[in-house]
C-alpha cells in the first residue's frame, strides 16, 4: 500500500482557539494526508507521547495565546530526548517576527501565520517529510 503522510495537529497550552488547527487539519486531509487531531489544552509531554505512539511524520503546533516561546521548543526538545527528532515540527499562530529566529533555532522548521494559504503548509510538509 502506498505510503501516506501522517501528521499530528496539536494545540499546546491553554489556548482554546482551534479554528486554525481544525481548518489546517481538514486541508491536510483533503490533500490526502492522515491527520490526528489531539484537541485543545495539551501539554508538550502529551503531544510528544502521542506523536511517538502514532509514529507521525510531522507535528503541527498551533498557539494563539503568546505562549509559543515556552511550548514549541519544549516539544522539539522532548522529541529529541526520545530519539524521535526525525519528526518534522512546524508551528502556527500569532507569532511576532522577533520570535521566529529563536523558534527556528530551537528546531521548529517553519512558522505559518494568519493569512497563510493552507497550500503553503501542504507544500512544506510534502517537501520536507523524509522517506
Amino acid at each position: 500500500m502506498a505510503k501516506r503522510i501522517k501528521v499530528l495537529i496539536a494545540k499546546p497550552g491553554l489556548d482554546g482557539h482551534d479554528r486554525g488547527a481544525r481548518v489546517v487539519a481538514r486541508a491536510l486531509r483533503d490533500a490526502g494526508m492522515e491527520v490526528i487531531y489531539t484537541g485543545i489544552r495539551q501539554t508538550p509531554e502529551q503531544i510528544v507521547a502521542t506523536a511517538i505512539q502514532e509514529d507521525v511524520d510531522a507535528v503541527g503546533l498551533s498557539c494563539l495565546s503568546g505562549a509559543h516561546n515556552n511550548l514549541f521548543p519544549k516539544v522539539v526538545q522532548l522529541l529529541r530526548e526520545q530519539g524521535a527528532d526525525d519528526i518534522l515540527v512546524f508551528g502556527g499562530g500569532i507569532i511576532p517576527d522577533a520570535d521566529i529566529p529563536g523558534l527556528k533555532q530551537a528546531g521548529i522548521r517553519a512558522i505559518f501565520r494568519p493569512g497563510t494559504p493552507t497550500e503553503e503548509t501542504i507544500r512544506f510538509i510534502n517537501e520536507n517529510v523524509s522517506e
Binding site: 497550552g13 491553554l14 489556548d15 501539554t43 495565546s65 503568546g66 505562549a67 516561546n69 515556552n70 511550548l71
Partner: peptide, 22 residues
C-alpha cells in the same frame, strides 16, 4: 489571561508561558 480564565493560579504547571499573555 488564560490561567485565570481556566481557574489555575500563575504557579500552576499548565500556566507555563501563559501568565499575563492574553
Amino acid at each position: 489571561d488564560l490561567p485565570t480564565q481556566i481557574g489555575y493560579d500563575s504557579d500552576h504547571a499548565l500556566a507555563d508561558g501563559e501568565v499575563g499573555k492574553v
